[in-house]
Design a binder for these strands. Structure first.
Lengths: 154, 154
DNA sequence: GTCGTTGTTGCAAGAGCTTGCAACACGGAC
DNA sequence: GTCCGTGTTGCAAGCTCTTGCAACAACGAC
C-alpha cells in the first residue's frame, strides 16, 4: 500500500547489515517494519508491543538488541524521557532534544536553535559536546504555569 | 558523635512531618541518617543498599516512598541520570543540572549560569519554566572528544 | 497507663529493561 | 542441492522501581 520505495531509507538496511557481516532475520524485518510506520518518538515497551502485533513470538530482548544495532547504523537514536524510560527517535534527520511538562505530561521538540546558547556555551567553556538527542528537559509549560499561578490563591 | 545540631537541616524534619500529620518512624529515621551522610548525588538502588547496611530489614518500597515524601518537603530532588536511572540530590542548595559524558561516564554539575541562555530563551519564547535539577545533559567531555579525534585516523 | 484512628510498612506482583547462555538458522562455500 | 561457521534468537534470571492491599504501629485522646 503506497510503497514509497524510491526514497525509502529503510531499503538500505539489509545491505548495510551484510556489509558488516550481520544478518537479515525475520525478527529484524519485523522491527524495521514497525519502525518504518512509527514516525517521531516511540517508547521501548511500546515497540515491543507493536512487534508482537506483527509477530506474536517477538521477545523483548531481541527487540532491544536489534534497536542497539539500528542505533549503531544511525537509523534511530535513543534518549530518556522525563520518567527515565527509553524513548527512540526514528530517522533523526536533525538534531533535537525534548521538552517535557511535568505537570500536564505533554512533550515538545526542542530545536537546535533553542538550545544553541547552552550547547555553544558548554563547548566554549568546558569543551563539552552536547548530544542534544539524548536530552529531555523537564519543567512546566506556559499553560500549566499559568494555571498554577491562578490556583496559588488557595 | 560530632553532632552538628546547631545548623543541622535534618533536625527540622520530625517537626515538619508532624505539622503535616505525618509520622516519625524508624524506617524514615534510617533513610534520613543515610541521606545526611551522603552528600551530592545518590542512586535509588544505592540508597536502598545503604539503608540495609544500617537496618537489614529495609525494603525498597519503603525507601522509595519515603524519598517521595522528602522530595515533597524539599530535602531532596530527584532526576534521571544518563542511563535513565533515578538519581537523588541531597539538600539542593542551588538549582543545578548535570553533565554526563557518555564515553567515560563521568558526571559534572551544570551551574545555573551555564544553562541560563537556554533557560531564559525557553521562558521567553514558549513560556516554559525549566526544572534544571531534573536534567542530565549527555554528550562527550573535552578529554574524550580529544581522544576520539586522535583515534579517528583508523 | 490503654484505646482508636489513620498514616506507614512489608509483601507480592508486575512493568521495563538487561544479560548470560545454549540452541538455532542465515548465508557463504562447495 | 547440502554443509558448516558464527551471528542471532529465546529463555530465564535479575535489576530497578512502582503499586495494591492487608496488617501494623505512631501518637493524640482519655
Amino acid at each position: 500500500m503506497t510503497s514509497t520505495t524510491q526514497t525509502d531509507p529503510w531499503g538500505s538496511i539489509r545491505d548495510l547489515l551484510h556489509d558488516r557481516g550481520m544478518r537479515w532475520t525475520p525478527q529484524r524485518r519485523t522491527l524495521i517494519e514497525v519502525l518504518s510506520k512509527a514516525d517521531g518518538h516511540v517508547g521501548g515497551a511500546d515497540l515491543v508491543e507493536r512487534c508482537r502485533a506483527v509477530d506474536p513470538t517477538t521477545t523483548p530482548s531481541t527487540v532491544y538488541r536489534t534497536l542497539d544495532v539500528l542505533e549503531d547504523l544511525g537509523f534511530i537514536r535513543h534518549g530518556h524521557g522525563a520518567d527515565g524510560r527509553e524513548e527512540f527517535h526514528v530517522l533523526p534527520t536533525r538534531d533535537h532534544g525534548h521538552l517535557h511538562c511535568g505537570t500536564c505530561g505533554q512533550t515538545w521538540e526542542l530545536g537546535e536553535g533553542e538550545a544553541k546558547g547552552m550547547v555553544d556555551g558548554l563547548r566554549g567553556a568546558r569543551g563539552f559536546l552536547v548530544d542534544l538527542s539524548h536530552v529531555t528537559i523537564v519543567g512546566r509549560c506556559a499553560d500549566c504555569a499559568a494555571l498554577a499561578e491562578a490556583s496559588e490563591v488557595d
